[in-house]
């Protein structure tokens, strides 16, 4: 069986996998990092989004062997060691950007990639377009979009603290 070495949330693992093992299977079943979800399993819904070498990817449509040597960050890798949430996580909480929460890990990972790739700032339209690959069946997206905009201000250094949600 092929062997794959991958660094996940700063920790390097070398494991034997089948050729057909998906990255999300390696994360959830071998490494027991179950924060990354499988929704549609057809690369449409985005619940499985993680970062690989700094870019958001759908881990249900990626072989574990294709992640050989890669740096992977999952939702579990965002908060600081003392439990302080990443600004995007904090914004999702503050803006009530989730209801059932199933899409949230992927939504947060995609949103961080979107904000990081757009240091010039993002309009509401940009955020909606940028989250094209993530489906949420509860929220209607409104609060997600507000949360991403608020987190972007913190991540881009325009504000030191998250703007409070009003109303």
């Amino acid at each position: 069986m092929p062997q794959v070495t991958v660094t996940v949330n700063g920790q390097t693992h070398t494991v034997e996998v089948e050729g057909r093992t998906l990255l999300v299977e390696l994360l959830r079943e071998t490494l027991r990092l179950t924060g990354t979800h499988v929704g549609c399993d057809t690369s449409q819904c985005g619940a499985c989004v993680v970062h690989m070498n700094g870019e958001s990817v759908k881990s249900c449509t990626l072989l574990a062997v294709q992640a050989q040597g890669a740096e992977v960050v999952t939702i579990e890798g965002l908060a600081a060691a003392d439990g302080t949430l990443h600004p995007m996580q904090e914004a999702f909480r503050e803006y009530h950007a989730l209801q059932c929460g199933f899409c949230t890990p992927g939504m947060v990972m995609s949103a961080i990639d979107l904000v990081q790739k757009n240091p010039q700032g993002l309009s509401e339209h940009d955020i909606r377009e940028g989250l094209d690959g993530n489906i949420c069946r509860c929220t209607g997206y409104h609060n997600i979009v507000k949360a991403v905009a608020a987190a972007a201000d913190v991540m881009h250094g325009k504000r030191t603290e998250l703007a409070p949600a009003i109303g």
Binding site: G46, S56, V57, K58, L62, L114, D132, G133
Partner: peptide, 9 residues
Amino acid sequence: VGDTQVRNR
């Protein structure tokens, strides 16, 4: 083409 994650792969 596709969505952001598809374009990244």
